[in-house]
Design a protein around this nucleic acid. Structure first.
Lengths: 262, 262
DNA sequence: CGTACGTTTGATCTTTCTCAATAATGGTGG
DNA sequence: CCACCATTATTGAGAAAGATCAAACGTACG
C-alpha cells in the first residue's frame, strides 16, 4: 500500500486520465478544440513512480522521451564547476519536463524529482508527430515552452536585481499563483515541498540566510508556517513585497471562474 | 553619408543578402537543405536603420513582426518595480529578436539597440507560414529559440552562483564564442559594445564594482583593454576563470573549419 | 532510540554596495 | 579646431547585505 503521493494535492480528486493535467496546463496558454484535446489524451505513455531526488534528465542525456508530471514536484538545476547548484525552475503536476531538451542534441541541465511522485513518459516521436499533424497542439506546446523561457527571464531578474526578502517572496507568490492557475491549490495555503537549502539554491542565497529571511516574513505577518505548509494571510501585501506581477506567466483568463488570489 | 554601422565587424565584408546572417545563425543549430535555405532568404522584409537605445520591443507590445539584426547589437532587459534593470541577453547580427515573443499574446520584456545598427523586419505571418510550410525551417527556428532559453538558464546560474569576477569573465567568454561561431570576430579581440553600467546590469552587479573587477582582470593579465576593445591574451585561462563551457550554446561543429578559441 | 537530515541561532568575516568626488572621453555647435 | 556638455570611467571611504563557520536543536524514520 503506497502512501499518498503528493499529500493534499491529489487526495480528494477522483481518478482521472494521467494526461488530463497536461491538457489543463497546455490550455492555460492556448485553448484547444475537442479533437485536439482528444489527440493529446490519446498520446501513448508509460507511467512511472519515482522517489524524491531521482533524476528525470541528466546533463548530457540524449532525450528520447518527454516526462509529464502526474503527481509530485520536480526541479531543474545546473551546477558550476566548483559544485554549487542553481535551481532554475520548479515544476508542478501537468507540466512537461522535456520540452526544453527534446529538440536539442543533448540536455544542458538536470531535472530531478523534488518529492516522490508519478510521471507519464511520452515517446519523443509520438509528441513530434502530434505536433506536426495538429497545428494547434504544436502551437500550444510551443507557447508553453516560450512561457517557460519567460519564467527563466523573470528568475534572472529576481536573482540579479532583488534583495533576499523580495526574491523569496517572489518565488512563493509564483508558486502559489501557478498552483492555483493549474487548479491544484486548495486555497490560500499550500505545501511548499522545498527544504530551505533548495529554496536557497533557487534564489541564489545560502540556506542560513533563507532561514533568517523566512523568520522575518513570519515576524512581519506576511506568511504563516507550519512545517512546510505556507499560508498567506494577505496575498496582496506579499505580492508587493515580492514585486510580483503575473504578466510574465501569460496565463489565459480562467475558463470557469476563480483564480483570484486577492 | 552614414558612418560605418558597426565598426570593424561589417567593414570589409562584401554586401550580401541582409538575411544571409540569419541563415548562418539558424544553421549554427540545425542544418538546412538548399530549398529551405532559399526559402529563408526569400522571406519578405523591410530594412530599418536604428539609433543606439531605440526600442525594438516594449513590454506589453503585441508582436506583429520579427526583427533580425543585420548590423550592430541589441539587448533584452526587464525592470523591477523600483526601476532597477536586469539585462537578460545580448544579441549579435543574424539573431532574430522576436522568436521569444512572436507567439505570445504580448511581450513580457523589452528589447533595445545597444549600438546603432540595421534590422530587417519580417512580418510575423510570413515567418509563421514558412515555419508551417517547411518543417525543417520550423525546426531550425524552434531549436534556435530553445538555445536562447538555454542561454537564459546559464545566465541564471552565472548570476546566482558565481562571484563577480567569474560572472564577468563568463559573459566575456560567451560573447567572444558566439561572435566567432557566427563568423563575426576577426580573431582574439573584439569590440565589446557595452558600458560598464550595462555590464553591471547584465551580471547583477553595480557599475563601480564592474570597474574594479575589470581592472583586476587586467592586472592579472587575463584581458587587455583599449577603450571598449577587449583582447584575450590567453583564452584558456579566461575560460577557467569564467567557468565557461560552451555546451549550453549547442553550436554545431563548423561546416568549414575554424572556431578554435584556444 | 539512534542516525541522518533539516532547521535555527550566534559570532564573525567578505563581498559587494552606496555615496561622493574627480577624471576621461566623445560628440556638438560655433 | 576649440570650448563645452553629457556620458562614462575611476577612485576612495564607509556601510550593509549576505556568506561562512560552528554548534545546538528538532524531527522523521528505520
Amino acid at each position: 500500500m503506497l502512501p499518498p503521493l503528493c499529500g493534499r494535492l491529489t487526495l480528494d480528486r477522483p481518478p482521472e486520465h494521467p494526461l488530463q493535467n497536461l491538457l489543463r496546463k497546455l490550455q492555460l496558454h492556448h485553448r484547444l478544440g475537442g479533437e485536439d484535446r482528444q489527440a493529446v489524451l490519446d498520446l501513448p505513455f508509460k507511467r512511472r513512480l519515482l522517489e524524491a531526488q531521482s533524476y528525470l534528465v541528466r546533463e548530457g542525456d540524449v532525450p528520447d522521451r518527454c516526462a509529464v508530471i502526474v503527481s509530485g514536484y520536480a526541479f531543474r538545476h545546473k551546477l558550476t564547476g566548483d559544485g554549487s547548484r542553481q535551481i532554475l525552475a520548479i515544476h508542478i503536476p501537468g507540466e512537461a519536463v522535456d520540452f526544453q531538451n527534446m529538440f536539442l542534441d543533448e540536455a544542458d541541465h538536470n531535472v530531478q524529482m523534488l518529492t516522490r511522485g508519478e510521471v507519464a513518459e511520452i515517446p519523443r516521436h509520438s509528441l513530434e508527430e502530434l505536433a506536426l499533424a495538429r497545428t494547434e497542439v504544436g502551437r500550444a506546446i510551443l507557447i508553453t515552452t516560450l512561457v517557460e523561457a519567460s519564467i527563466f527571464r523573470e528568475w534572472t531578474l529576481n536573482i540579479g536585481r532583488r534583495d533576499a526578502r523580495s526574491r523569496i517572496a517572489h518565488l512563493l507568490c509564483e508558486f502559489a499563483y501557478r498552483l492555483t492557475a493549474q487548479g491544484l491549490s486548495p486555497g490560500s495555503d499550500y505545501e511548499l515541498p522545498m527544504t530551505q537549502e533548495q529554496l536557497a539554491d533557487a534564489t541564489g542565497l545560502t540556506a542560513v540566510h533563507v532561514n533568517r529571511v523566512l523568520k522575518g516574513l513570519v515576524a512581519d505577518g506576511l506568511i504563516e508556517r507550519d512545517r512546510r505548509v505556507i499560508r498567506f494571510p494577505d496575498f496582496k501585501r506579499m505580492r508587493d513585497v515580492g514585486d510580483f506581477n503575473a504578466r510574465y506567466l501569460h496565463t489565459l483568463p480562467p475558463q470557469d471562474g476563480h483564480l483570484h488570489l486577492g
